[in-house]
Design a protein around this nucleic acid. Sequence first.
DNA 1: AATGAATGAGGGTTCATTCAT
DNA 2: CATGAATGAACCCTCATTCAT
Lengths: 222, 222, 222, 222
Amino acid sequence: MARRKRSELGDVATRDRILESAKKHFLKSGFQAAPLRKIAEDAGFTSGALYGYFASKEELFYAITDPVAKAAMKKLDSIRAEMDTPPAEKRLLSMGRIYYPHIPEIVDVFLSDRDAVKLIVYGSKGTKYEHFVYNIVSRNIDVINDAVGKTKGRVHTLEREVMDTLVEGYISTLVRLIVSDKDRETIIKCMEAVGRVYENGIVALMHVGDTKKRSSAKGGRK
Amino acid sequence: MARRKRSELGDVATRDRILESAKKHFLKSGFQAAPLRKIAEDAGFTSGALYGYFASKEELFYAITDPVAKAAMKKLDSIRAEMDTPPAEKRLLSMGRIYYPHIPEIVDVFLSDRDAVKLIVYGSKGTKYEHFVYNIVSRNIDVINDAVGKTKGRVHTLEREVMDTLVEGYISTLVRLIVSDKDRETIIKCMEAVGRVYENGIVALMHVGDTKKRSSAKGGRK
Amino acid sequence: MARRKRSELGDVATRDRILESAKKHFLKSGFQAAPLRKIAEDAGFTSGALYGYFASKEELFYAITDPVAKAAMKKLDSIRAEMDTPPAEKRLLSMGRIYYPHIPEIVDVFLSDRDAVKLIVYGSKGTKYEHFVYNIVSRNIDVINDAVGKTKGRVHTLEREVMDTLVEGYISTLVRLIVSDKDRETIIKCMEAVGRVYENGIVALMHVGDTKKRSSAKGGRK
Amino acid sequence: MARRKRSELGDVATRDRILESAKKHFLKSGFQAAPLRKIAEDAGFTSGALYGYFASKEELFYAITDPVAKAAMKKLDSIRAEMDTPPAEKRLLSMGRIYYPHIPEIVDVFLSDRDAVKLIVYGSKGTKYEHFVYNIVSRNIDVINDAVGKTKGRVHTLEREVMDTLVEGYISTLVRLIVSDKDRETIIKCMEAVGRVYENGIVALMHVGDTKKRSSAKGGRK
DNA sequence: AATGAATGAGGGTTCATTCAT
DNA sequence: CATGAATGAACCCTCATTCAT
């Protein structure tokens, strides 16, 4: 009935129209609640047509989300690999230096399909990406804690839970910025600012830790 | 058929068993995808039995989530009211001082029903709590920006987007801690640490801003 | 919760309160659509309480409708019996004379519980009274046709279908008047007027029949 | 499972089979009590199949009843419009003359789908047609009373309630004939006969009124 | 006498999926 | 390639009825 002719749309392939419509509905309602029939209708087809391109609703979801998810994992893995090059006991200190220049690349990977990232973050309940962000966070926490453990010599580090919290907070902030509709430059600017806030804040906190230990907890808030 | 005698289950009231089972399923599958019949079955009843206690699936959800949501809003509102007492131009500076002592209270409110908070945060799609955290974040951002705007005299503030990002990050961290299964003391400790990191980090960043302005952006990372 | 104390209601017995409430709901929604629970609640009880007085929803309906239905059948049967007393071949002519004086009695029987009659007429789908009026009509038609058949000598009667239609119309009018909320005197007045209209109208029609037969259908509408 | 091949059933389209089955069940049980599942099963389908053709149970009902209801209203409206053409003070007298020739048309409209009319009359509780006949009756009563009121000069009219009763009786008779399974010619014949009975009967009754008034109620039954 | 809890069957409706055409 | 018809399971919810208390 409301079927649009292909010619009206230039050369937009069927598959792409389906993906576009699916994105829209998955974003609006999430994976579980988005009805396949409406996805198909908005693309100008009947729901049966989808099965010529995707084996199931879930595969359709992955057709949208897999590329950015894989690209992101690849990018993060390569950065992690780079971080692993220094000797174990120096790894912690070099991390920041290695990491910072990669920020724009990371952002660009995620921005290559922002809607797909939104989908992963907000609409993936019921799919394999349900815990995607959580998994990234966990891995980073592990990496850092591993580095902390292997750092030789006295190292003023924060307590484990605080460190974890900050790592998770940093990554979550990154993710939130990606899905925030801010433009690329703003995101990068914010990421850098947040990075510095964390860096400076952590340094300051560790000095307090020093002081505290030396002066047997004389000051401190509360 | 599967009707269990109350004696077999001790004195757990029906309503409580339903709530418990509902919590479990809502947590696992989210509001929309959790089937009422399974909730009922896991509680040892038929699905019709639920309707003796709750008018609808949604009401069942709210029976779990309303108490902590209302308590949280009340607590946050009262803190915001307290923050409004200083004269407008001094509000920004006093915020932290007023806010910090309330952290344990805030944590306690949320911890009064941790699962309910998880539900609100992760499983409320399709309910009135869908945007609960987002709303809290928005309000806090507004309050702070309002205070910034009214602060008399030269005020070294961060750019608007960075500030918003940090506020959102802070609150999100709080929420994540609540739903993280850490114990109360750890959460409070982390919240205070994160608060100090943000505070010190922001102060450091603003000094850089000073320097930058004075020396026409000589340094700074990339 | 909203349970009224018996003392507040004087000596209104439980059973009567249930019947009253049932009447209300059956009238509003019909037998099938009226929920027992609401009937019970409006009477100030729980739905289980009904089963102390009535074996089923259907029995509750009959508790309301049986009395007037039986009384009506009895009254109509006695009138029919009286009509049967004249010799078969004179029965037709005496019918009207015998019937008319009973009109007020018939009306009074139905008015003894007007709501119950409404129930039978409008809300009895799914019960044994579904075809109550239809049955009365059928019986009257049979009686009259029987009398016509046994009337000796030339009798100018209308065609069978027309006669049936008129009988049904007359009785239906009676029923509609009963359920019309008009007062007793008005109903009787209308019944008598309608009776005369039918009588005079039929007489006139039969003369036309005469004329028609004699003058070989010269006139007549269309 | 019970899916029958189309060939086994000739060329009866699915939609028509559903409508047919729906008609059957709606007639038997009424709109509310007729289960969609059984309607579907009797048509040879699963209940979900209905929703490919009708948006809801109610729409299915209207798919059956709307056509005849609309056609009937249109026909009656056009007749009413025609009756409105004479000057107001002569309207009453011309009504019958205008109306009678339309009887066959009215009958034909209703007979175009007799089962649908039965549905409207007997099985429409819970739908927009619940008061269809009542509305027609009301409108006709209004029209006639309006004409009576505007008739100039002495007019021997019956008392208001009697008049209303007769109008309602006449229309109800028409409706009952339609749903009576009599054939078209019989119905028309009966309608005309009933019309004449009413006409002659009313004329006779009005003369009695004359006499009564002149002779101060000397005679009259009872 | 009445409750209140619970059942179990059934209600209308939605939806991912299949498949002949 | 795409449709359109249909399935079948699952969904939330309602209700007459039962029964221990």
